[in-house]
Design a protein around this nucleic acid. Structure first.
Lengths: 339, 339
DNA sequence: AATTTTTAGTTAAACGTTTAACTGAACATA
DNA sequence: TATGTTCAGTTAAACGTTTAACTAAAAATT
């Protein structure tokens, strides 16, 4: 049988209350006693029972991580890394992360993640775009909620977000500074607000540099599969447009599709076409030459999110604080300077 | 405040014991009372507290899912899908899955997943190859353990496994039946037993067909990144060997690398080279032509694993039962019949 | 020396379940 | 009629914590 607080108390010759106080670092306990108790705790490999603790505190130490199944299974490990970040921070703070997927076509009345119904989570992380109907459905449980990489159009929630607009600008400006003018934007899942914001950043940068080019250079397309999306979009772009010299691919999965298209059509990167991506590419994907990109701190998004959420839970405040994680331009070899 | 069993009892005019018995479908309760209680449960949105339940049953309803960080972050969604399977089945059986990653260079003394230390899981799923040192470290906690897609070399544990050998045979035999003789095997992470077994199946099939070709056709290589691995291995293969007509790539990530190599070297699939993979390819990866492959039921592996593990937990037996999930040859267009 | 304050604990109730042991009424049996 | 038996529940203890309220001893104050 696993040891309980009683066993520790007996071994250390104190009451169970003392053990509990030691566990919580209460200053009422002398350092001598503390030492003795701690020694026994270690010796017996004692760990307090979560159930017992949860029962009295009515706080379980779990946080829910909700994502659409589609996003979770994406070949890009974007959200997987975010998840890992949440796991790291949760562990640090003595919490567990419970992952649940929902359908991206969730509609009212569909079953909710069990940890919501059973209130087996102290708070909830909603990751990536989720259906509005889902958000509506869980509102009434009023658990603390925090969004990651998405904010619903209405309602004011806290969130951990990427500075997509600045990223879009950064990417575009870098292309402009490298002498490009005919810069195309290829958008993946354009209905995701993040992509919209990147597009907005792109437009802003062009405007600022007084470059006016028709909308023909912006190709969007809402297929689910980002790579095919990138491929098809590139195809579409080049049919209409022969003089593009640079492409801003709004995600790296899109970029991979674009690369395939360029390869299939004997267009060399960066000599014929310069290309910049968004999100650092997984090392596993072979891209030749290495892709210049905007790096997003995925793991950090997870850790920040958990920190903020736990804070909201602890202080029982309602906040709509937004944390914007910094992005970074990573220059590699996919862009040609044509100045 | 969330409703408790007391609230239900009061509303239904019974004792809390009755409510509990209704919850457990005890036949001691008349159907009339049962109906009344159930009605109130629904009305009040009552869900029993996990903490309270866990406390009295000393069984928490969590199962741990342990995987190396490296495997979890793989671009192939193989293990992600297995995870999803476990999640589905766990949910069905009123359990939660707690995921923890460990380092693939885990050594004695490294910190263990918290749910092991705290015994916050009733049983553990170990997924993919993990360091021997890790297995040694957790043995002493003697929690029920089940392996997925891996079995440690020593110790007799239950597991849910792929019939890799049969898969290797199936793939190779299909190539043979299509008239190929110079069939190469390109192995990804060859130190993973699964890959070894596929290789063994390959050899068996060749033997059975009386095809003798030197070991020059087997290229293995233990780089971590499967795609680069595939690329490099293909390179190596073709330097030594000019007359290969078919390749069996031991994983699909490897196959993708091989495809890139072939494309870069103007070798057409299937006209110049036939190719077969292993694991069904993610729809997102653009492969032209569609790849013939051995399909592995990933989600099913997860559900089966949870079923078996929960069974072991419930019956408190020690078993070393192995579940071999069926595989399937999926014929698409990457193989040329040269008979 | 008597009183008050501080220190370093202890006692006991509470959290929400499960379930063995009990009970009282209705029914069956001799 | 007296006595079992079955039915349909109820009572109460137990699970392992936390923490407010209490206490006994030591230290400080008058």
């Amino acid at each position: 049988m696993r040891p309980t607080i009683k066993d520790v108390a007996k071994a250390a010759n104190v009451s169970i209350a003392t053990v509990s106080l030691v566990l919580h670092n209460n200053e009422r306990i002398s350092s001598e006693t503390k030492r003795r108790v701690l020694k026994r705790i270690k010796q017996l490999h004692y760990h307090p029972s979560r159930s017992a603790r949860g029962l009295v505190l009515s706080k379980i130490g779990n946080i829910g991580f909700i994502i659409t199944e589609e996003h979770f299974l994406r070949t890009e490990s974007f959200y997987t890394r975010v998840f890992l970040g949440t796991e790291f921070e949760a562990r640090e703070k003595d919490n567990y992360v419970l992952l649940a997927t929902i359908s991206s076509s969730f509609k009212k009345g569909d079953p909710l993640p069990r940890f919501i119904l059973e209130r087996n989570a102290d708070g909830i992380l909603i990751v990536g775009k989720v259906p509005e109907a889902f958000i509506e459905s869980i509102k009434k449980y009023n658990m603390p909620i925090l969004f990651i990489d998405y904010l619903p159009p209405n309602g004011d929630f806290p969130g951990v977000l990427i500075d997509n607009e600045r990223g879009g600008m950064l990417a575009t400006e870098y292309l402009i500074n490298s002498g490009h003018q005919n810069i195309a934007f290829i958008g993946g899942e354009i209905s995701h607000p993040s992509i919209m914001e990147r597009l907005h950043g792109y437009k802003l940068a062009l405007e600022k540099a007084n470059i006016i080019n028709g909308n023909g250079l912006v190709v969007t397309n809402d297929e689910n599969l980002s790579r095919q999306n990138g491929y098809r979009s590139a195809e579409k772009l080049f049919i209409q447009n022969k003089n593009v010299t640079a492409i801003f691919a709004s995600t790296n999965a899109t970029a991979v599709g674009v690369i395939q298209y360029l390869k299939d059509n004997n267009l060399n990167i960066p000599n014929d076409i310069s290309l910049i991506g968004f999100d650092d590419v997984e090392a596993d994907i072979m891209i030749d030459p290495p892709l210049t990109t905007i790096r997003v701190p995925k793991v950090k998004m997870g850790t920040e999110a958990v920190q903020l959420l736990l804070n909201i839970i602890k202080t029982e405040t309602t906040t709509a604080k937004k944390i914007i994680v910094p992005i970074e331009l990573v220059v590699r070899e996919s862009i040609k300077n044509i100045n």
